[in-house]
Amino acid sequence: MTNKNPGAQLRLQRFFGQNETILLLVLLAMVTAITAVSPRFLGPENLFSILLSASYTGIFAIGFLLVLVSGGLDVSFTAVATVAQYAMGTVLLANPDISPALALLIPLLVGMALGSLNALLIHYLSAPPIIITIANLNIFFGLLQFITGGEWLNGFPEWFDHFPQTYVLSFENADGVKYGLSVIVMIWLAVAVVAGVLMHYFKAGRKLYAMGGNLEAARRAGIDILRYRIFAYGFLGFCAGLGGMVHTLITQTVVPNTLVGHEFDVVAAVVLGGASIFGGSGTVVGTVLGVGLLAVLSNALTIMKVPTYWHEVFVGAIVILSITITTLSALAARNREKKYHAQ
């Protein structure tokens, strides 16, 4: 090689080969292109609205990432979120004077309980997670529909209605309408930061990566597999509950089938973010970028007045394209490392 410092070059290539870097560059390129076409895009009002509309998907995605990293899979979280929404909505309508803290705690507890149930079944039946969670998706959702009769819930207390309009930063636009960075977006970011710190700086997080990388080795190293499965699936349950709550706060109604059926949107975002479907790899930053990319894309299509029925074509094409690029670049990276270390 003519290069004087192949190690540094490899590091540079590693950095640019990293999924997060690629995603960020793509995101920036997209933002630049869209702004050039429609300058309104980059305005704070639009950006805040993108963040708000992506918040619950973002929260689901963080939970899903943890399960994926641990070597698991869970497609039942949309049903868990819906059950959690109904539990909260029902209690709120029956006792409008209930303390807000208590009301908002309900979906979280419901979520964690159902998530842990997934973990227990997967562990004790030693069955593939996808099968168990498909079964549970049907059970949770079927029973919910059966019990509630598919009834819509709305007319929640006033504080509940005002919650999403609590702004961390607030502005007024030319028409005098208030807008800003909603506290809900902060909830999403908080979850992301907590998960990010947990996965990198806590032993528990590293153990989740270890389990996803080599389950048998994790067992031999003395990791309590059941405990960490409950942790991962329970955390996704928590995120499902929280996402369900956030969704209700934004829409102010609880409808049985707005979330169920959209589990794969979240899967697509997380995979786009670079997490491996087979476990053991993936980062919170990548996941947030993955969610962001899809949100920006759909917002851009709206701004550019592309008919909504074309949106999914773009999303599908982007997902296939990005997965192809990731697969091919992973192959290339492996060859590069091989070559470098063979020298």
């Binding site: 995979v271 999914e312 999303v315 094409a317």
Partner: peptide, 11 residues
């Protein structure tokens, strides 16, 4: 792959 085509075909 089929997750991608699922979204694409539906789109």
């Amino acid at each position: 792959a089929t997750l991608g085509t699922m979204i694409l075909y539906e789109g």
